[in-house]
Design a protein around this nucleic acid. Structure first.
Length: 1020
RNA sequence: GGGCGAUUAGCUCAGUUGGUUAGAGCGCCACCCUUACAAGGUGGAGGUCGCUGGUUCGACUCCAGCAUCGCCCACCA
């Protein structure tokens, strides 16, 4: 059976076999257990918009590493999985799909049908996402899978909303939104793209009402959007125009002193303009300022409305005409000005982008029609001063490509003042620790603004806001209708002239108040509202469940930096508000995955990598190990993307140019293949290339190395008998590998405690490959041939492998389980003290703790001497081009201690360098014709007799001498420096002196060796 | 505009509180299919640590400035 073990690690069957095994054994499931300490993670729920990408793979790998380790450490570990309904994103994806396939809009389908379709989509992608997680090996408790729109989460949402409503923290108010006139919907800021388009700057004159002598007759304003003047409610001037201009000039001068080239020319032009303004414009601005202070008004032409001149710093004298028209209902900045001055807010737009009755004579026109007509009419009145060409940065809707109209609408908000403060305090006083700590700043800065949270979205996919409106009922009637119900609350909305009625659970019928009609709020809640509750809603809040009592607060949140504010901050405040306790103790922020160009990965760019492709090619363990290995504290993960040709399986680099093409030609075999963009039937018919990255190869090779190391052990376990191993039975290499194992165990523990995943991976990689495989396994080979030495070698070998598999399991769960199960067949009982029966799965085996007894600095440094001598011998073989099969002889001149150490290692030199150690000790003299290497205090001579290439050896010695000379010079200089001798600490000086002595000694040895070589060459 | 991070070998990255000769993987060169592993082994070449100053006996490491790149936030009549 052993001989059937494949030479190459085959990940596919292994992954399927053991994942099923773990699930069947119920290892993933967690129940509150008073005898254990809990360790809990809630997954950042992936959006059901699509499949998982590499970023998710990273996020979930790290969580699984934490969870698996803690599980092995004996914690009751719970990892709650789930997905997020991701309101806007999901609805948009499905709507787009329906439009492409059926040419229908959501209005054609209606709310119920659209929502039904999105649920179907959700089912499909949720499945896909969960199966991707399983394929990666994630040890989530699948029985507790949640979805942010499922009944459990919905209940938490409703209770939260109701409570906030009762506390008066939820309110209704006006807000400017990005309005898409084509889709007739609000779009979020990140669905808006900016494009620079050619446009104009129109200069309009607004007549001053009853100008006094010496006062200007007009105020001139400049605008890129003439039609919005119909909604103007003021004209603003700066309260201190002279000072403001002066400040601007100082600012530009400062920049100018540092600038150069093209930038300089621009700044100089700017400065000239400012100076001109100071001369020509300032007197008028001062007069206007005084008029504004005096409460004077201007006449808004075309609609003939009197509007005030106001003083506001928003009117920058260095911009435009120095005066600015204020349109609070259609410009974000003007909105702020309007609020500061309590200006009326005149909305001039209908949802379809035509002008409404507030636009007077322009009512019914489109924006563009109105723009032309307004300009024409102003010109007719003689109020158009001039028109300039100008490039304008215009916001467009991502989805419909039409220009965005800022529009004032009714929205729901959460008052953040106190909630934000609570969330800030939790991080400031350390109840929530953010790692790396630098990310706390962004969190605190954002919360410190305490901007109210707009929670309503004009969508159909999401938690519908549980508010019913009634305009006609009296408070008495409401009280009567809901008498005795503490789950209904109401409040009068003076702005909308209506009752707002909120209910904690369930629905209110239209006629819940006899004789009146209730209308339900159509909007849904921001996705982050339900996400904010995730750590407690998934555990059953608002009920006082055993889960809430046991698992809450959760232990660690693992997420990426771009949602620290949107999500992490809101979870903290929601947890504090609802439960009275933080949602998690630690937040670990991991790096972002970027492509070869340093750009983030995304579907639209076409540079995304599906972890399934990677697992297909390299295996889940390779995916996981590579990601862990690349996770360092400060560096994002650069991941060049390759297509794998489906014909010849060679890689083709993905570039900015080829990454969005439907079909590509392999540069290696010349055949065509399809990509994810293939749409035409002839493209789709081609085999599709996997999209992967060469960066996973290292990890795949590592898994293979582990597999083969284990294979070696398994092949050599015949006759294995578990038994206690006494200290005096251990050879130097045993004590060395056990010492190394102890320190590696300690280092890995520390690294994982501090979320240094990359370090942990590196430590294990190097230990496994460079120490366990390259040395221990090689050395044990000889002992295994010797019946007397074999049993102890087997026991130590098995024990180290056992420990190594346990240490590696959180990162590479599949290959370690495979090895573990094979070991169980041949060596079910293992251990150096009292051998014990190993756990039935490495997943539940105890996590290794460092065995301090074996930790020995002395053994490690002794072993290093052996390694160095071995390396010197190998080096000589290589540089002398000695055929690999040719055995050579060597001797070592060294002190007695070193000799005592090297002499018993003879068999290892034979096995590992095909070299026979003839003698070692202080009396040893090198043979006349020898290749020589000198290490500090050790001279290695390889007897080469006829074989030697003396010239090469002489050349090499000369190089070596030159190098040593250089180093000695540097050292002598340093040690001659009085400053250094006076100020450097004693131990540093001592070390330098010792090092110099050693170099000098090595120099002398090398020189002597060179001398001998020269003599020999001359003689022959 | 504000904040954060990065810049080390051809590429991708490590580099402990400042102290011997700055490391790894891939790629490259030479030799090897040696019965765990060619997804491997042995050896090698390759670096003025982005630039300029400063602190220090001593700087890849600390400080300041500059340059380039990236991310987040704000803003652009």
């Amino acid at each position: 059976m052993i001989h059937e073990l494949p030479k190459v690690y085959e990940h596919k069957p292994v992954e399927q076999r053991w994942y099923r095994f773990w699930e069947e054994k119920g290892y993933f499931h967690s129940e509150p257990n008073p005898n254990k300490k809990p360790y809990t993670i809630v997954i950042p729920p992936p959006n059901v918009t699509g499949a998982l990408h590499l970023g998710h793979a990273l996020n979930n790998t790290l969580q699984d590493i934490l969870i698996r380790r803690k599980r092995m450490e004996g914690y009751e570990t719970l990892w709650v999985p789930g997905t997020d309904h991701a309101g806007i994103a999901t609805q948009a994806v499905v709507e787009r799909r329906i439009w492409q396939e059926e040419r229908k809009t959501r209005h054609d389908l209606g709310r119920t049908e659209l929502v039904r379709r999105i649920w179907a989509w959700k089912d499909e992608y949720e499945n896909r996402i969960l199966s991707q997680l399983k394929q990666m090996g994630c040890s989530c408790d699948w029985a507790r899978t949640r979805f942010t729109l499922d009944p459990i989460c919905t209940r938490a949402v409703r209770h939260t909303f109701f409570r906030l409503f009762c506390e008066g923290l939820i309110y209704r108010g006006k807000r400017l939104v990005n309005w898409d006139t084509t889709l007739q919907t609000v779009v979020s800021d990140d669905e808006v793209f900016h494009e620079t388009v050619p446009g104009h700057f129109w200069y309009f004159r607004y007549p001053v009402i009853d100008p006094r002598p010496g006062e200007p007759k007009y105020v001139t304003i400049a605008t890129t959007r003439p039609e919005t003047m119909l909604g103007d409610t003021a004209v603003a001037v700066h309260p201190f125009p002279a000072r403001a201009l002066e400040d601007a000039i100082v600012d530009v001068e400062k920049k100018l002193s540092k600038a150069s080239g093209k930038e300089r020319a621009e700044l100089e032009a700017e400065l000239a303009d400012l100076r001109r303004r100071q001369r020509e414009l300032l007197p008028e601005l001062i007069r206007l300022r005084d008029m504004a202070a005096d409460g004077r008004r201007v006449l808004l032409p075309l609609v003939n409305r009197e509007i005030p001149l106001i003083l506001d710093e928003w009117a920058k004298p260095e911009m435009g005409t120095g005066c600015v028209k204020i349109t609070p209902a259609h410009d974000p900045n003007d909105y702020e000005v309007g609020r500061r001055h309590q200006l009326p807010m005149v909305n001039i737009l209908n949802p379809d982008g035509t002008l409404n009755e507030n636009a007077g004579p322009y009512c019914g026109q489109t924006i563009l029609e109105a723009r032309q007509n307004v300009v024409r009419d102003m010109e007719g009145l003689g109020l158009l001063e001039k028109v300039e060409d100008r490039l304008i940065d215009l916001a467009h809707s991502d989805r419909s490509k039409t220009p965005i109209e800022p529009m004032l609408t009714d929205q729901w908000f959460i008052a953040m003042k106190d909630l934000a403060q609570m969330a800030m305090d939790a991080v400031i006083d350390g109840r929530v620790k953010i790692i790396p700590a630098r990310y706390a700043k962004g969190y605190l800065d954002w919360l410190a603004e305490k901007r109210d949270w707009p929670i309503s979205r004009q969508l159909w996919w999401g938690h519908q806001i549980p508010i019913w409106y009634c305009q006609t009922a009296t408070e008495e009637e409401i009280k009567r209708a809901f008498a005795g119900r503490d789950d209904v609350a109401w409040r009068w909305d003076s702005e909308g002239n209506q009752w707002l009625i909120c209910v904690r659970e369930g629905e209110l019928s239209e006629d819940a108040i006899p004789g009146h009609k209730l209308r339900r709020e159509e909007d849904v809640l921001d996705t982050w509202f339900s996400s904010a509750l995730w750590p407690h809603s998934t555990l059953g809040w608002p009920d006082d469940t055993p889960e809430m009592r046991y698992y809450y607060p959760t232990s660690t949140l693992v997420t990426s930096r771009d949602i620290i504010t949107l999500w992490v901050a809101r979870m903290v405040l929601a947890g504090l508000h609802n439960v009275g306790e933080v949602p998690f103790r630690e937040v670990y922020i991991h790096p972002k995955i970027l492509d070869a160009y340093g750009e983030g990965m995304s579907k639209s760019k076409g540079n995304g990598v599906d972890p399934v492709d990677v697992m297909e090619k390299f295996g889940a363990d390779a995916l996981r190990f590579a990601l862990a290995y690349l996770t360092t504290e400060t560096q994002d993960i650069r991941m060049p993307v390759d297509f794998e040709c489906p014909h010849c399986h060679k890689f083709m680099e993905q570039t900015r140019e080829n990454r969005i093409l439907p079909r590509l030609r392999c540069p290696h075999c010349g055949r065509d293949f399809a990509t994810q963009w293939a749409e035409k039937p002839e493209d789709k018919a081609l085999p599709r290339a996997l999209v992967v990255s060469e960066r996973f190869e290292v990890a795949r090779n590592f898994c293979n190395k582990l597999w083969n190391a284990a294979r070696f052990v398994l092949i050599n376990l015949e006759g294995y008998q578990p038994a206690r191993v006494e200290a005096d039975q251990l050879q130097l290499e045993d004590r060395w590998i056990l010492s190394r194992l102890a320190s590696v165990t300690e280092q890995v523990n520390q690294a994982l405690d501090e979320y240094r995943f990359g370090d942990a991976a590196r430590i294990l990689y190097e230990f496994s490959w460079d120490e366990f495989c390259s040395f221990y396994v090689e050395m044990v080979k000889t002992r295994l041939q010797n019946p007397a030495l074999r049993p102890v070698a087997q026991r130590v070998l098995v024990w180290v492998l056992d420990n190594l598999m346990r240490l590696l399991h959180p990162m590479v769960p599949f290959v370690t389980e495979e090895v573990w199960q094979h070991l169980a067949q041949l060596a079910p009982e293992r251990g150096l003290d009292e051998p014990r029966r190993a756990a039935e799965s490495v997943m539940i085996a105890p996590w290794p703790t460092p065995d301090k007894r074996f930790f020995s600095r002395q053994v490690e440094s002794q072993f290093r001497v052996f390694q160095e001598v071995l390396r010197a011998v190998r080096d000589i073989r290589s540089r002398q081009n000695i055929p690999p099969r040719q055995e050579i002889e060597f001797c070592v001149r060294c002190d007695e201690d070193t000799a005592a150490l090297l002499n018993p290692m003879g068999m290892y030199f034979a096995a590992m360098a095909k070299a026979r150690l003839k003698a070692a000790g202080p009396e040893v003299q090198g043979p006349p014709l020898a290749a020589q290497a000198n290490l500090p205090g050790i001279e290695v001579y390889v007897d080469l007799a006829q074989l030697i290439d003396a010239e090469a050896e002489i050349r090499r010695k000369r190089q070596e001498l030159a190098r040593l000379e250089q180093m000695i010079d540097k050292k002598r200089q340093k040690l001659a420096d009085r400053q250094f001798l006076e100020k450097a600490p004693a131990h540093v000086i001592e070390r330098e002196q010792a090092s110099l002595r050693q170099l000098e000694e090595q120099y002398a040895v090398a020189q002597a060796a060179l001398g001998r070589l020269l003599v020999q060459v001359q003689n022959s």
